[in-house]
Design a protein around this nucleic acid. Sequence first.
DNA 1: CATTCATATCGACCGTTGTCGATGTATCGA
DNA 2: TCGATACATCGACAACGGTCGATATGAATG
Lengths: 114, 114
Amino acid sequence: MNDATTAVAGCVSLAAPALSNEEAEATARLFAALGDPARVKIVNLLATNREPVCVCNLTRPLGLAQPTVSHHMKKLVEAGLLDREQRGKWAFFSLNHEAVSKLAGLIDLEGGSQ
Amino acid sequence: MNDATTAVAGCVSLAAPALSNEEAEATARLFAALGDPARVKIVNLLATNREPVCVCNLTRPLGLAQPTVSHHMKKLVEAGLLDREQRGKWAFFSLNHEAVSKLAGLIDLEGGSQ
DNA sequence: CATTCATATCGACCGTTGTCGATGTATCGA
DNA sequence: TCGATACATCGACAACGGTCGATATGAATG
């Protein structure tokens, strides 16, 4: 999922002249994707491990049931922060580094468009 | 409010080796502070206008009632993203650029601690 | 001191969201 | 084909959060 349906696709820098309602909502959705401790840990695991991770390897370190983990993965994919790849029975999730870079750029008020 | 009670004080980079529960919760609280369109707009206004803003000047551009705006300002102050200064009757809010810089650093997975 | 104004807090309402068990779907192996 | 595995979806429940009107606090003003 790297298309226009992701939140990151509709985001503009926080230093942009005047955010529209749609831009503010998309930006809020992107930040809200990281507004849960479990999802922060998921992104942290993917950022440090480098290799894609499947759901079954996340339930134990997160201490959450499998449906809950799937729920969080879906949120992160919809935000555009994670990519999903199906390999047989397994669904492998990896960081979308382009989206992460764009997120970092949103907050850069000095070197941004200010 | 720039003390240890703010969310930004307990945050660690998303590229840090292994986030504790407390670090993940603090990071999530910081991101959640920007997980609402109204608060995104508030930060955007403060980032572009440079000058501090009081609540009475935000109700009209946001289209929200005064208690709602105060609620959002409190969330942003608790997160550490905004500073509050009382001048007579008015409460002036301004961006905490140190916190914004730290937030941008949290997401920088390349130049960070990875 | 009374009034006005700016802001915070309270209480209530209600939509959203995190959580899990149960179930459905699809794939792989025996 | 059958059973096991991995994952998504569904339904339900509880907790959280955004919103507003009413009210409280506190400061300037006359």
